[in-house]
Simulated scan of single mutants.
Amino acid sequence: MLVLFLILAPLLQVLLINRSPWGGPDLVVLAVVWLALSRGPVWGCVAGLAAGLAADVTPPADGTVGRTALVLAVTGLLAGHWREGAALPEGRTRERNPLLAGAAGAAAGTLLQAGAAVALGDEPWRAALAALPWTLAWTVALGALVSPVLLRRRHSVEAEPRVAMRRV
């Protein structure tokens, strides 16, 4: 389901969200963060690279090709590491709060994209800052609300033991 959303996110972003007068979340960042939180840092990095390249070439492509791919790969990697939790002394790990992990991943992705656009000269800093507050608010809110649901569903599936073959 998340992989399908990752494939459709750049298209939905261009067709629906970017044309709405009230703004909206960055669906590509959210798709990468949610996949990284549910699957881990490697999946998040690969998903960020693939979704970023798709977003870079989806019309109207107006920036440096690869900028979004790099930013989303880093975002997916960071979100996946945030998911894994902090290491405790006796070799145990402590899960991080999924609400905070989703919000932090969404915020990091949105801020890194704005920073990369300004740093590479694709947008002037005033134009990047003008749209940033609304996009950041939408993306962080949606990332924080949906991430706990995704992680709770993932943990319930992992908790059930799978038996390939039963001995009689």
Score class of each variant (00 low, 15 high):
E95M: 14
E123I: 09
A50C: 13
L145D: 06
L53D: 03
L112E: 03
A159I: 12
G80I: 06
T139A: 12
P59C: 14
W43Q: 03
L150D: 07
H155P: 04
L129C: 07
L142T: 14
L145I: 14
G85I: 05
R152K: 10
V146G: 10
D122M: 06
T93C: 03
G102E: 11
P133L: 08
L151F: 05
L77K: 00
G91Q: 04
T135H: 05
A116T: 07
G105T: 14
L111A: 13
A137N: 10
H81S: 07
D62H: 07
P59T: 14
R94P: 07
S156D: 05
L142Q: 09
A73T: 00
V157F: 12
R126N: 10
W125Y: 05
W125E: 08
V146K: 05
R67T: 09
V140E: 09
L53R: 02
N97H: 13
G102W: 08
A141K: 08
L150K: 12
A61I: 13
A127T: 15
G143P: 12
V140F: 13
A47W: 00
L100Y: 15
W134D: 15
G52Q: 01
V149P: 05
A117Y: 01
V71L: 03
A131W: 03
A108F: 08
L112P: 04
A50P: 06
V46A: 06
A119L: 14
V57S: 11
A51F: 00
